[in-house]
Amino acid sequence: MYELFVLGELMTGDKHGYQLQDILANSVGLVRKISSGTLYPLLSRMTEAGWIHLRIEEETAGGRTRKIYGITEAGRRRFHELMEKPLGTEAVAETELLFRFKMVYFSYVDKDVRLACLEQYLQMLEKSYQHVTSFERYLLTVKPEPEKQRVQLLRVFDHRKRLGEADMQWVKEEIQRVRMLEE
């Protein structure tokens, strides 16, 4: 997933490691942190794989060197492979993050790739929604104890259903919008 992020960001132009880390930190949200210990080994592996290249520049202010990363032609091919790859069946939170990364880079892929990604995400949302409503029906029918916990769990499910409905509606509208685009 972070491979896609790095390649996607480099599709927009060369960046140094700190820029990538800063953009990634803002992309993944407040809960998740991406350390230098995760990012820089990934950049090294991607350089070794030939997907990105490294250029070292000397900074004038402090005399420190700065590593600038750029995407290679092999990296562009890898980026398109990752964008075309189905979302998969990872944990919902991972799939949501991957979906958000892919959406950011939709402008670099064709309409069919965008639609496939949106439709896969919609299927995941629908499956999750069905799971919540199914368990909600179980709680309403069987009424397991303790009652206070069951009642609060039903509130949680009501929240999840409302979020799911809003997400599904937005994705359906986005699918329609993308279908209408000229290529």
Rank of each mutant, 00 (worst) to 15 (best):
A93P: 02
R55K: 15
L139H: 05
T95W: 01
E173Q: 15
R78D: 01
P146L: 04
V92Q: 06
V151A: 10
M83D: 03
E90Q: 12
V31K: 08
R45V: 06
I71T: 03
S36H: 05
D22M: 03
Y105M: 02
R66F: 01
L115M: 10
Y108C: 01
V109R: 04
S27F: 13
A166S: 12
N26Q: 11
G70H: 06
Q21L: 15
H80G: 00
V151H: 08
E81L: 12
R177S: 03
A49P: 09
L4N: 02
D158F: 07
G50R: 02
F79H: 01
V109C: 06
K102A: 08
L24A: 13
H80A: 10
L125N: 08
A74C: 03
I56W: 02
L125K: 09
A91K: 10
T95H: 01
S35W: 02
S36I: 05
E73H: 08
V151C: 00
E174A: 05
L20A: 03
V92S: 11
Q120C: 03
V6C: 07
R150H: 03
L87H: 06
V132W: 05
I68D: 10
K127Y: 04
A91W: 04
E145P: 12
G75R: 02
V178Y: 07
Q169H: 07
